[in-house]
Amino acid sequence: MFDVQKPETAVDQTAIKIAARNVQVFYGNTQAIKDVDVDIQDKTVTSFIGPSGCGKSTFLRCLNRMNDTIDSCRVEGEILLDGQDIYAPRVDPVQLRARVGMVFQKPNPFPKSIYDNVAYGPRIHGMARTKDEIDEVVEKSLRRAALWDEVKDRLDTPGTGLSGGQQQRLCIARAVATRPEVLLMDEPCSALDPIATAQVEELIDELKQRFSVVIVTHSMQQAARVSQKTAFFHLGNLVEYGDTNTIFTNPQDHRTESYITGRIG
């Protein structure tokens, strides 16, 4: 098992943050994920690609137990975060989600002020108690999400009044404000225009300094641009997993190759 080091020390590129073993996911009687084994490294951007409906979101939601909120969903197998099984009975999914944050496909800011959106997590977890501490967390998170300069003069206006790209960055700020160790992003750019997309991608690159980032995307260019590791899913199976470069230049599996060259869609 791995030591849980707060890695302010030298970046250990090969430290494995999340290890999934033999994961099966069912919705009722239909199986959405079959026999998935994957090791997600710390301080790395890992992208999940694959045709729609292949189970990328489903697998991603297993990593912070968001699937618990779907009644019909059942997860089997083992998912280890820093060596501890996150589906063990004594694990509290609520605390797990504070460590493994998530950004959704559609920006979903709360109908509250920008400030309250970002302060939501820290307040709930008691991470910042005084007004000054919260102010600091909010500013830091918004800066990290590259949104600070645009909103610093209107922190008390509703977060829902921002543009789509700004809303998504606000959601990223909200997710990083709880200082998670892993950040899951489910197609975070699918509702954004190219400029906003570029901003978010830049952000993801920044974020990997501190977190392990897992991003689902249907854009292969995006996967190639932002990620170091890529996993290709097809019909609920993890077909191929490896360095992004290798996957895109020299895929081992013919299905990966067909998808990358545009023959499976």
Partner: peptide
């Protein structure tokens, strides 16, 4: 919208916090 509930749960809020806040 369900997305709001998911967003709250995803930052580690409990169900009661999600409802009240």
């Amino acid at each position: 919208p369900r997305s709001l509930r998911d967003g709250s749960l995803a930052v580690g809020a409990t169900q009661a916090e999600t409802i009240s806040k």
